[in-house]
Design a protein around this nucleic acid. Structure first.
Length: 499
DNA sequence: CTGTATATTATATTG
DNA sequence: CAATATCCATATACAG
């Protein structure tokens, strides 16, 4: 059946070439449009969008050539799975490794070795305009937050008061608390941008009060930044990097050091974007897909991630090594979250249809010691603790959003919610706002459903004529009450703010 | 129990 | 404006 397979590959290759041509054509139109809008000087605010530089465009085109050469060279895709998951990732990764003149003529092993290293931000950068402004902005925020931290005597006071729940939550992650008026949340045209191409899997505000910077990860392995308040002449404040070859499954920002940000990828790699050294360092390279990533809120040295079919690992920043893996689930772990008031308590959600609560002091010893196991009828796409830790919210493909409360989260409320996103929209994940009042979750009618914990139902829906696609992934700003980022499968980000 | 095949879904781009 | 390509999510049906 060898000839049959070959034609199949040929077909895929041609499709890829075609897709690339389409993208190039689209980019040309993009730049023409932007020129046009400049010359005609439309008073109307043109929707902000990423712009890829012609040079880098060329670079993104090259993997096609590589792809072909690999195929024609007869480099076997993979003996194990015809799906070619790993294989595909490896190939697209070579778009980055192209910098290495030897990489495409070397054996896969050498290619692999090259991939297992840092990537400079410069090499990963794809946008037209310079990224100096972004780097300076991040470093500036980082310096400021460090300054305020060292001056913050409250920290030490709080450390001696572990028992106090409220103070504990203030310390951890330093998230602000506050109630909001849902009706006051508005979407202004200025707060809309297309930050990356393709589907966004992850959106996150940089944890700072000194700037509003949004980070997103998409299915191509791009990491996009949007400095929301940037001047229009600075490329709309949008910056695009390509540090990964496959979908980005997690972004974890260090609130105590803004210049350090982790990103995880379906190809099994985790990188640390170090803005000071201007590198995407490689911190972990596993053989299984990494599906979820989370940092323990008050222990920046521990990075938790879900890998393969239900495995969980902890990576230690001090040793640079990861723990042995714990088999917590039967299928992929979609989210990992910690109880803000007691970070020994962790919750995971999984495609195996369960969400579990774990005590980290026990889980390493005997993994069958889940404190609680919540069973949905289908895959569970998320499980998050509320800001006070008194609630747990789960979102499942069984069209339910679960709300759990009580000492052992024994009180259950299931709120019906259509979570059938199909193939092209990232699964919905209900997230908490700035207190225990509301859970925000996307809906298929281009709105954001707001579920009230007291009303135990969808009490409001954020809608706007400006929102032209389905918001599927969210982040509540950690320090600005009422500032909510929503991201779509078309690469757009919408930022709702209180009016 | 493991693997394959298929329907589902919305968006952006094409003609 | 309607047709089309997307293609790494997920559940189900069915074969081995």
């Amino acid at each position: 059946m060898a000839p049959h397979k070959l034609t199949e590959y040929e077909r895929l290759r041609l499709e890829n070439i075609k897709r690339n041509d389409q993208m190039l054509a689209a980019l040309k139109i993009h730049s023409k449009l932007s020129q046009l809008s400049e010359s005609t000087k439309r008073p109307r605010t043109q929707t902000k969008s990423y712009k890829v530089s012609p040079e880098k465009k060329h670079r993104t085109e090259t993997p096609i050539v590589l792809r072909r050469s690999l195929r024609t060279r007869g480099v076997a895709p993979d003996s194990s799975t015809a799906g070619g998951l790993k294989d595909d990732f490896d190939e697209s990764q070579s778009s980055i490794s192209r910098k290495n003149p030897n990489s495409d003529s070397e054996s896969p092993l050498t290619k692999r070795a090259y991939e297992r290293g840092p990537i400079s931000m410069r090499d990963a950068y794809r946008t037209d305009a310079s990224d100096r402004k972004l780097i300076e902005a991040i470093l500036d925020c980082s310096r400021k937050s460090r300054l305020s931290e060292s001056n913050n005597e409250l920290d030490d006071t709080i450390k001696g008061m572990e028992g106090n729940e409220l103070l504990g939550s203030l310390k951890v992650g330093r998230k602000v608390w506050g109630s909001i008026d849902v009706d006051a949340l508005k979407l202004e045209p200025d707060n809309i941008a297309r930050v990356v191409p393709g589907r966004i899997l992850n959106v996150r505000f940089l944890p700072t009060t000194d700037a509003r910077i949004v980070v997103v990860g998409n299915k191509f392995g791009d990491v996009g930044f949007w400095d929301v308040d940037a001047d229009a002449e600075d490329g709309d404040g949008i910056y695009l990097y390509h540090p990964h070859p496959a979908p980005i499954s997690g972004i974890a920002c260090n609130p105590f050091s803004l210049s350090k940000m982790f990103t995880s990828c379906y190809n099994g790699f985790i990188r640390l974007m170090d803005t000071e050294r201007e590198l995407f360092e490689l911190v972990y390279a596993g053989d299984h897909a990494v599906f979820s990533l989370s940092q323990s809120p008050n222990d920046m040295n521990s990075l938790y991630f879900g890998e393969g079919n239900g495995q969980l690992r902890v990576w230690d920043a001090r040793t640079g090594k990861s723990s042995s893996s714990w088999g917590l689930h039967q299928n992929r772990i979609n989210t990992i979250d910690f109880k803000p008031q007691n970070t020994n308590i962790m919750t995971t959600s999984s495609t195996d249809g369960t969400a579990c609560i774990w005590d980290l002091r026990k889980v390493g010893v005997n993994r069958s010691t889940a404190l609680k196991c919540i069973r949905h009828e289908r895959a569970v796409h998320s499980a998050y603790f509320s800001p006070s830790g008194r609630f747990l919210a789960t979102t499942s493909a069984d069209n339910m959003v679960g709300l759990f409360s009580g000492d052992t989260y024994q009180n259950m409320t299931m709120v019906y919610h259509n979570n059938q996103t199909g193939r092209w929209i990232s699964s919905f994940r209900g997230i908490w706002g700035w207190d225990d009042s509301y859970v925000f979750v996307g809906n298929m009618r281009r709105g954001v459903d707001v579920i009230s914990t007291t009303g135990k139902d969808v009490t409001a829906t954020l809608q706007s004529e400006h929102m032209s696609a389905i918001p599927c992934r969210f982040d509540a700003h950690p320090y600005e009450v009422g500032t909510l980022a929503s991201a779509t499968s078309g690469g757009q980000v919408y930022i709702w703010r209180p009016s």
